[in-house]
Design a protein around this nucleic acid. Structure first.
Lengths: 167, 167
DNA sequence: CCGAACTTTCAATAAAAAATGAAAGTTAAA
DNA sequence: TTTAACTTTCATTTTTTATTGAAAGTTCGG
């Protein structure tokens, strides 16, 4: 496998994985491209490399910036904007975990809490609803803590220690 | 909030969350319905409750069974099939983690490994590709181990201890 | 076997999501 | 200012994904 084959394989794999996890392909591929690019890339560069339109590129770059994993850069004397990815994989994971927690997990936890606090009326179905939403609430809480605290702890020593321990 | 409101809120929240994580809405909602149902439900029950077609119900039930989190049950003397969800939330998490690892993470790890082993040719772009895919490989490995071993360890004592430790 | 009760499949359709590209918007140098 | 270089927006189109429902398949009691 030569460089170009490897690059394309990486980009398309990343795109496919993203899709499975609810991230659109273009967004995942732009990110893949930036993370392996030693130099910041312009919008033109990205459009050409991935064969996608200007609008698509612009919107997905914005989303990646909203996620806090891609940044604008300016080259001196140039009007054009350039983009880079967060290059530290630990930090990348930390940021993604943080955002998914904030956007998805925390709102869900709130609702699970509301639902699990309805008035017990003695029926089996109400009992089951309360019991299961309580259990899910607890699980989501644990997950939330792990995502926010464990991933990307400084140098990620906890994870490393843990993995060693249980491997 | 009364029982029906709470139930509907739970089901629609679960469906929406599923969608964000690449799971189709019907599948997530069927699962939500089953996990709070004290009794096994028939296909008719599910179709009616969620207002979805027979085919849709059938296909998504199959997928849930493939994931190992929904089971067929027979009531004695009845021809019809009934369905239940895994009710233990720990076990549910364990099973989902195991499947996502098997289906998505492990294939990705393999590809990251292939890509990161291309021949170093001294160029900056090749260096960066190798460096970053190696880092992602390592991260994915860690994640894979955590998903397979930590989540759902018996009684999940490691998670509990860990959460206590870092909370 | 037969037929009724039930489930699965799959071509067709509908719905949702992503992508396009041209017009509108922005910015900064002259 | 003006204008050229560049970016963003968004109505429209395309693509992808999910859903339907009827026909085909299966299973079991008699």
């Amino acid at each position: 496998m030569n460089y170009d084959e490897a690059k394309n394989k990486f980009i398309s794999t990343w795109g496919a994985l993203g899709t499975l996890w609810g991230i659109n392909k273009a967004m995942a591929q732009i990110h893949a491209l930036l993370i392996i690019s030693p130099e910041p890339l312009s919008m033109e560069d990205i459009m050409e490399e991935l064969q996608i339109s200007r609008g698509n590129t612009s919107m997905n770059l914005r989303q990646l910036m909203d996620w806090g994993i891609v940044f604008k850069e300016n080259k001196m004397g140039e009007r054009k904007e350039y983009f880079t990815s967060e290059k530290d994989v630990q930090e990348l994971a930390r940021q993604i975990a943080k955002e998914r927690s904030r956007r998805e997990l925390q709102p869900t936890i709130k609702i699970l809490n509301d639902v699990s606090n309805i008035k017990e009326d003695g029926t089996a179905k109400t009992k089951e609803l309360i019991k299961q939403t309580k259990a899910l609430h607890e699980m989501a809480d644990t997950l939330d803590i792990m995502m926010n605290k464990v991933v990307g702890q400084d140098q990620n020593w906890i994870t490393k220690a843990l993995v060693k321990l249980i491997k």
